[in-house]
Amino acid sequence: MSNIIQSGFDKEIQPSYLYEGYKSTIIRAPTKPLVMPKKSELSLTGPVFKDFKLGVLDHDLTKNAVKNGEPLGERIVVHGKVTNEKGHPIPYTLLEIWQANSSGRYIHKADQHDAPLDPNFSGAGRCMTDAEGNYKFYTIKPGAYSWGNHPNAWRPNHIHFSLFGGDITSRLITQMYFPGDPLLEFDPMVQSIPLKGRDLLISKFDLALTEPDFALGYRFDIVLRGHNATPFENL
C-alpha cells in the first residue's frame, strides 16, 4: 500500500459539516475538530467490485420496476467517467443510484410530498464502471419536490449517486443536477458547496450521447478523492 498517496477532502470544493442554510446540519454536524491520525498508521483499503454481479436490468431504471406498462416521464441516458484526482480512470467500481420519479415523488414510505407514485418506476439502480472508468445508465428525468427546510423550499431535479473507488477515503455520496434548473440558486444543498466546486455537480446535456427516438443524453463525470498511481493493485 506504500504507493497509495492520500489526499484529504478539498476544503475549497467540499461543503462543511455545519451549513445553517440546511437546517438539519445544526444538530448533526460534529462540533469538535476531527482527529487526523498519522498517515503512516493507516493502511487503507476498501471493498472491491471486480467480481460484482449486476442484475440484467439494474442499469435501466426505465425497465427494472415495470409492472403493467412503461414509467411516465422523459427518458434520459446518463454517461460519465469516474477518475481519481490525477484523471486516471477508476475501473470496475460500483455506482448506486436512487431518485424521485418524474412527478417528484420517492417510493420511500416516509416521503409525504403530495405527488403521484408511478407503479412502473422505483427509482433505484446500479451500474459499474468499465475497464476505462466509464459508466452508463438509463432512467427517467426526476421531478422537483417541496421539502420542509424553509417556506416554499423546493429541491431541484437531481439523481443521488453512491460510489466507492479504491479505498474508504474515496467513498462518495453525491447528487447530480441538471443544467439550467432555476431552482439551483435557491437550493441550500447546492449553495452549501463553495463557489469553486458548485458547477461540478451540474451534468451537461450532450446531443452526441442522445439516443434518437429514445432518450436525451447527459454527461456527468466524477472525480473521487486520491491520486494513487495504481488504484487497483489488489484486483
Partner: peptide, 24 residues
C-alpha cells in the same frame, strides 16, 4: 493526464436512501 482534477463535491444521503442502498 496528470493535472489535478477537482474532487466531485459531496452531498447528503438525504432521508430517502433506503429503497436504493438498503432495500431488502
Amino acid at each position: 493526464m496528470d493535472k489535478k482534477h477537482l474532487q466531485t463535491p459531496s452531498q447528503t444521503i438525504g432521508p430517502f436512501f433506503a429503497y436504493g442502498l438498503t432495500p431488502t
